[in-house]
Amino acid sequence: MPLKVIYITLGFIFFGLGAIGAFLPVLPTTPFLLLSSACFARGSDRFNDWFTSTKLYKKHLETYYESRAMTVKTKASLLTLATSMMVLSFLAMPNKYGKIFMAGMIVFLYYYFFFQIKTIKEPVKE
């Protein structure tokens, strides 16, 4: 039971960061909403149902969950954040085997995004 409380709490923290990221261009939205979704799914069916009915979910994640596809803009924002964090880790890594591992992870990340996740056009705003 306490683990569910942790997941729900983290879900709300990540949801809040994702909501702030929707308005601030320097804070990414999608990665935090993905984390929020994962936490709510593990924490509570009720909160997961609430989360999947929000406008943020529908705008940023619904197409990915339905079709396993992302827009170019979403892919670019996720890759920018992930790559910058991985490059910082690479630079801070004192061990050459650790650097080789991090370089391999960066290559795998780009392979996965370019060849495993379909790219769709940006939905037309009405």
Results as ranks from 00 to 15, higher is better:
residue 9 T to F: 15
residue 10 L to I: 01
residue 10 L to G: 13
residue 10 L to W: 13
residue 10 L to P: 05
residue 10 L to V: 03
residue 11 G to M: 04
residue 11 G to F: 10
residue 11 G to K: 11
residue 11 G to N: 11
residue 11 G to I: 00
residue 12 F to S: 06
residue 12 F to A: 03
residue 12 F to T: 03
residue 12 F to P: 04
residue 13 I to G: 11
residue 13 I to W: 09
residue 13 I to L: 15
residue 14 F to E: 15
residue 15 F to D: 08
residue 15 F to N: 06
residue 16 G to E: 12
residue 17 L to Q: 06
residue 17 L to Y: 10
residue 18 G to S: 07
residue 18 G to Q: 05
residue 19 A to W: 13
residue 19 A to Y: 15
residue 19 A to P: 00
residue 19 A to Q: 06
residue 20 I to R: 07
residue 20 I to E: 01
residue 20 I to P: 01
residue 22 A to R: 09
residue 22 A to T: 12
residue 23 F to W: 06
residue 24 L to E: 03
residue 24 L to Y: 07
residue 24 L to R: 02
residue 25 P to I: 12
residue 25 P to A: 15
residue 26 V to E: 09
residue 26 V to D: 08
residue 26 V to R: 06
residue 27 L to F: 08
residue 27 L to Y: 06
residue 28 P to D: 04
residue 28 P to S: 12
residue 28 P to V: 08
residue 29 T to D: 04
residue 29 T to G: 10
residue 30 T to E: 13
residue 30 T to C: 04
residue 30 T to M: 13
residue 30 T to I: 12
residue 31 P to L: 04
residue 31 P to Y: 07
residue 31 P to K: 06
residue 31 P to H: 07
residue 32 F to H: 11
residue 32 F to Q: 07
residue 32 F to N: 15
residue 32 F to K: 04
residue 33 L to T: 03
residue 33 L to K: 04
residue 34 L to S: 08
residue 34 L to Y: 09
residue 35 L to E: 14
residue 35 L to Q: 14
residue 35 L to W: 12
residue 36 S to P: 04
residue 36 S to W: 09
residue 37 S to H: 15
residue 37 S to F: 15
residue 38 A to P: 01
residue 38 A to C: 04
residue 39 C to H: 13
residue 39 C to T: 08
residue 39 C to M: 10
residue 39 C to Y: 14
residue 39 C to R: 11
residue 40 F to T: 02
residue 41 A to D: 04
residue 41 A to N: 08
residue 42 R to P: 01
residue 42 R to E: 13
residue 43 G to R: 11
residue 44 S to H: 06
residue 44 S to V: 00
residue 45 D to G: 10
residue 45 D to Q: 11
residue 45 D to W: 06
residue 45 D to K: 13
residue 46 R to H: 04
residue 46 R to V: 09
residue 46 R to G: 05
residue 46 R to N: 04
residue 47 F to I: 00
residue 47 F to W: 09
residue 48 N to G: 05
residue 48 N to A: 15
residue 48 N to V: 03
residue 48 N to T: 02
residue 48 N to L: 09
residue 48 N to C: 12
residue 49 D to V: 02
residue 49 D to Q: 13
residue 50 W to Q: 00
residue 50 W to A: 01
residue 50 W to L: 01
residue 50 W to F: 11
residue 50 W to T: 00
residue 50 W to C: 01
residue 50 W to P: 00
residue 51 F to S: 02
residue 51 F to M: 01
residue 51 F to A: 02
residue 51 F to G: 02
residue 51 F to T: 00
residue 52 T to M: 14
residue 53 S to T: 09
residue 54 T to Y: 13
residue 54 T to W: 12
residue 54 T to L: 07
residue 55 K to H: 11
residue 55 K to N: 09
residue 55 K to M: 05
residue 55 K to S: 14
residue 55 K to I: 05
